[in-house]
Design a protein around this nucleic acid. Sequence first.
DNA 1: AGGGGCTTGTGAATTTGTTCACAAACTTAG
DNA 2: CTAAGTTTGTGAACAAATTCACAAGCCCCT
Lengths: 212, 212
Amino acid sequence: MKRIAESTVRRLSIYLSFLEEIGARGVLTTSSDDLARLGGTTSAQVRKDLSFFGSFGKRGLGYSVPELSAHLREILGLGRKWNVCIVGAGKIGGALARYAGFAERGFNITGMYDSDPHKLGKMYSGVAVQDIVHLERDIKSGKYQIAILTVPPENAQNIVDILVGAGIKAILSFAPLQLTTPPDVTLRTVNMAMELEGLTFALTKRSSDQQY
Amino acid sequence: MKRIAESTVRRLSIYLSFLEEIGARGVLTTSSDDLARLGGTTSAQVRKDLSFFGSFGKRGLGYSVPELSAHLREILGLGRKWNVCIVGAGKIGGALARYAGFAERGFNITGMYDSDPHKLGKMYSGVAVQDIVHLERDIKSGKYQIAILTVPPENAQNIVDILVGAGIKAILSFAPLQLTTPPDVTLRTVNMAMELEGLTFALTKRSSDQQY
DNA sequence: AGGGGCTTGTGAATTTGTTCACAAACTTAG
DNA sequence: CTAAGTTTGTGAACAAATTCACAAGCCCCT
């Protein structure tokens, strides 16, 4: 199979959430044009994105909302439940544990880990914080397919190495630094300070543009 | 000035955080090769990224860490303080308000807003939650340059319109949906469920790869 | 049953972003 | 002062992603 660009996968997620929204409102069919308008892209882009995976529409008519939703869920791997653990029960970890949006999408937070003895046993949405020494064992036993990392930056690479060693294949990190994983382990990093820097760059560039 | 790719700006942020790290350890010079290794890219990419903004190195020697840091801070618009408000004092908003990483980078959370009367007056890191009816007035008076949006998706576009109407030019949204702003307002969206979907796509694709 | 009006699916063209490769410029050693 | 050894900065080559443009297919109307 041809390599799929990350930007394509991001757009598929956008299309899916739009489809689910209009599906819930009872809309039965839609078009690449509709999907494009909402996704902030072009209809050709939508059709190209979908074409990597098959052809799901009817010429002259568009796409069936429930059908395309189902296909996208399948493509994105949402046809099953995923068990996720959160490593680091600080502010962000705690907020994510309570975030309802994950469960809606089939992501179950079934474990939390921390090294701070004061946090052990604390409950977040029915999940108790465990000692991080059990993390390796639990991953090895197949309890989790995905780990969310919300630990301080100085420990992050260390924990990543433990996760990888125990066999995890997908990590979502919120630590503000560049981490490394072997090629067979997928890592995504969300760095909030970096997002803000993207904004300040735009703000600063705008005002200098106006001078020229 | 030539348009700068978003990927370039992201990398500049990565270079800067690496420079600040080694600068704090007393390292005085570095090379495009070092920056590349840490940033997960190539030395040619590093030099090309920097070349859009000037030439900051010395041939044969590399880059002065403090000098290049200062240039990158300037380029990214970090040469000043930025006042940021958080709209939506729920779990994620609260966690962000307390997140120390922002202040370190010169982003001051100086206001929080919510519409829920139960949340008014609550303190987060010394900032009290105000009624959202004051938001428009405060932006118009120039109190904030950046808004962080952590409201439920059903209200998000509505709030964006208020923010834009009041003159904000940069928004960081955590709402899990596609928002629209006029072209002179920069919007970045962090969608955590979407990040997880990127991971499940990779996990699913990997196993189907193995079949072929 | 045939024609008109849509909308998809997809090669080809274009644009955007990355990598290559090397001259230019600097440091250090002798 | 010259030569050897580095590392930058940047056009040119290449690769990736997006957009264009149009044939193919489907529905509906007469």
